[in-house]
Simulated scan of single mutants.
Amino acid sequence: MQARLIGTIGCLLTAGVVAACSIDSTQAENNDKPRKTSASYALRQGESVMLAPGTTLKLERINDSRCRKGAVCVWAGYISYSFALTSRLGTRSFVLAENMPNAQPAITQDGLTFALEKLEPPEPPPLHAPAPDYKVSLRVTINQQRAQPAKT
Rank of each mutant, 00 (worst) to 15 (best):
D64F: 14
V136I: 12
A97G: 11
V74N: 15
P149N: 10
L57F: 01
T37Y: 03
T37S: 09
T152S: 14
A115L: 04
E123V: 09
L127N: 12
Q104G: 00
A115D: 06
G10L: 07
T91S: 14
L85Y: 04
E98N: 05
R4T: 07
L127V: 07
D64C: 09
Y78E: 14
P34F: 05
T91Q: 14
V140F: 06
S48A: 10
E60R: 14
Q109S: 02
I6Q: 15
S38K: 07
S87V: 00
A52Q: 04
Q27Y: 02
Y134S: 14
D24S: 15
N99E: 08
D64S: 11
L119E: 13
V18R: 15
A52V: 01
E120K: 14
S38V: 03
M100P: 09
I79F: 09
P125V: 09
A20W: 00
A84V: 12
F94V: 00
Q148D: 10
V72M: 12
S93H: 11
S38D: 11
R61S: 15
V136H: 14
L127T: 08
N63P: 04
Y41H: 11
K135A: 04
R92G: 02
D64H: 13
L57W: 02
T14D: 02
N102L: 10
Q148M: 08
N143R: 10
E98Q: 03
L43Y: 08
A131E: 15
L13F: 10
